[in-house]
Design a protein around this nucleic acid. Sequence first.
RNA 1: GCUGGCGUGGCGCAAUGGAAGCGCAGCUGAUUUGUAAUCAGCUGGUUGGAGGUUCGAAUCCUCUCGCCAGCUCCA
Length: 576
Amino acid sequence: MELSTLRHSCAHILAQAVKEIYPEVKLAIGPAIEQGYYYDFAVSKPFTPQDLINIEQKMRKIIKADLPFSREEWNKQKARDFFSKAEELYKLELIEAVADQNVFIYKTGNNFVDLCKGPHIESTGKISAFKLLSIAGAYWRGDEHKPMLQRIYGTCFNSKQELADFLRKRVEAEKRDHRKLGKELEFFEMGGEIGAGLVLYLPKGALLRTIIEDYEKAEHLRRGYKLVVGPHILKSDIWVRSGHYDYYKENMYTFQIDGQEYALKPMNCPAHMIVYQHKIRSYRELPLRLFELGTVYRNEKSGVLHGLLRVRGFTQDDAHIFCTKAQLKTEIKGVIDFVVSVMDVFGFNDLQIELSTRPEKSIGTDEDWQDATLALQDSLKEKALSFDINAGDGAFYGPIIDIKIKDALGRAWQCATIQCDFALPERFGLTYIASDGTQKRPVMLHRVILGSIERFIGTLLEHYGGALPLWLSPVQVKVIAITQTHHKYAEEINQALGESQIRVELDLRNEKVGYKIREAVKQKIPYIIVVGDKESDQGTISVRFQRGENKGKIENDLKIENFINNLKKEILSRKY
RNA sequence: GCUGGCGUGGCGCAAUGGAAGCGCAGCUGAUUUGUAAUCAGCUGGUUGGAGGUUCGAAUCCUCUCGCCAGCUCCA
C-alpha cells in the first residue's frame, strides 16, 4: 500500500473522529506529509493531550467498523450548498480555489463527507498501525495574517513493526538532541540569562570550535583563499550602500555612536567589498578569494530559535570570491569540490542539493539573473550532481545553491550555500583593470562551507550522538589509576600523552574503577586507559576503546609508545 | 511574531492554596578498589523576574524574561 494514500486516509479518519466528538469544530485541510499526516481544525478551545487520547480511541472504533471510502464527483454548486449548510467555511474557500467546474468528494461510510482529490484506501479497516503525535498551532493556508488553526499531527504505517521502528527512531533522535548533549558533555550554555539565541561556549565546546576553525583556516589557505578580519559593527551608511538596509533591516540590530547610526553586522559581505576596494585591482589578481570566520548577529523572530541550529549570533565560515565572468564556473566547481571534501572529512557523504531562483523582491537585471542561474546550474551538471529547483527561493541579490547534509538518522541539515551575486559589485562600483587596459566589473560569489559553526556543531553532535571522531574530541584519552599506589605511573602515562599533544585527562580520584570508567564513557571519551599493578610492573597500559567497530573492546599489555603512534595516525586520518 | 505547553538547588524530578522535598552531582570521612554506580554524614533553593489577590502563594491573577512543540521565516 502506498504510504501517502494510507496516511491521507488516516487523516480523514482523524477528522471524522474529531467531528464525532466535537461537532462544532470546522475542518480545514489534512494532507499526508513525509513523517505521517496532519489535519487542521478551527476550534474555540485548543486540544489537550487528553483530547488526543480520546480522539485516538474514536479513530480505533472507526477503523474497526471498516467503513468504505467512496468517491463522488459533484458540481461546484452542489458542493457549495452542502458545505455552506454544514458551515464549513474553510471547505468553501477550497472549493473556490479549484479550477474545474466539478470537485471530488470522499465519503467515509455514510456519515463523514470531505472535499478531497483522493486517492484513498478501500476502507478504514485497512489501517493497522497509527498514532497521533502532537498538537500545534498552524496558520490557515500558511499565512501569518490569517487565523490560526489547531493542527493534530499523526502517523501511520503498513505494519505495527514499521510504526514501532518509527517511534524508536524518534526516541533515538531525542537522545541525540544536541541541546541535551551540549549540557551533558559541558560544551555550551545558551539562552536564559545570556539571552535568547545566544551561545556561550564552555571550555570543551570552545576547544571543539577551535579545532574546527583551525582546520578550516588551514584548508582555506591551502586552496588559495586570503584570510581577512573585520569589525563586528559597521556604520549604517555601508548597509544602505549594500542594500541590506532596505532589504534586511528588520533583522538588523542598530544603535547610535556619536550621533551616527551603526549596525551589528548581519553579514560579512560589505566589509569584504571594502577589502576589494582597498586598491586598484588587476585581472592578474583574480580570482580573489577572501575568507573570514565572520561573526554575525541577526534579529530572528523569537519563535524560530532552536538550540544551536537557529540562533541570533553565529559565526560563518564565509568567503567572497571576486572573479571574471569567464572564471565563474571554474570557481563554482571549485567550491563544490571544497564542500564535498570537507563534508566527507566530517563524516557526511550524503548530500542533498537545491538550486533556488529569482525571488519577487530582488535587485539586478534580468540578464544578470539568467547568467548567474545558468552558471550555478551548469556547474552542478558538470559535476554530475543531482539537484532540485526551488523556484523563487533565491536571495534578493542572486540565485543560490543550497547543500544539505544527511546525518546518521537520515535527517537533512542546511549547511553550505553558494550564491552568485552580480548586484553587490555594481552597488559598490567594483572594477578591475583587464588585460586590454579597460576597466571591467568583477562577478562575486558568496559562499559558506559549514554555514554557521554553531549550526554545524549542533549537526555534528546529533550525527555522532556526541561520540565525536578522535580528532574532534575535546578530551581524547582518560587515564584512570586503580589505586593510590598507581598514581605515579598514571602520572607518567598522562605526561607522555600530553607531551605528544594528545588531549588527556587524569582521574586519580579515590573511587572504584567501574565508577571512573562509567563517567569517562558518559563523557564519550574515545579512549580510556586503566593502569594498575600489572601495567606499572610491566610498563604497559590497558586500553578500552569507545569508538567504531572496537567499541567496548579492551586491549591489554600495550606499550604507551605504540599507542601514541596509533593515536597520532588516527588523528591525522581524521577518520571515525 | 503567532497558537499551545512549561520554568522548583549544578543536572533530572516531587510537592496544585497550609512547614520546599527526593535522586544524581558537590563537600567531608571511611574504604585502596581491575573495565558502566562502595558506604556513611553534610552543604546547597528569596521556586526565572516584577507586581497583585489572600490570614497564608512554588501553586491563583497581570506583566515581563527564558525554554519546548509547531506555524511563518532562515545559515
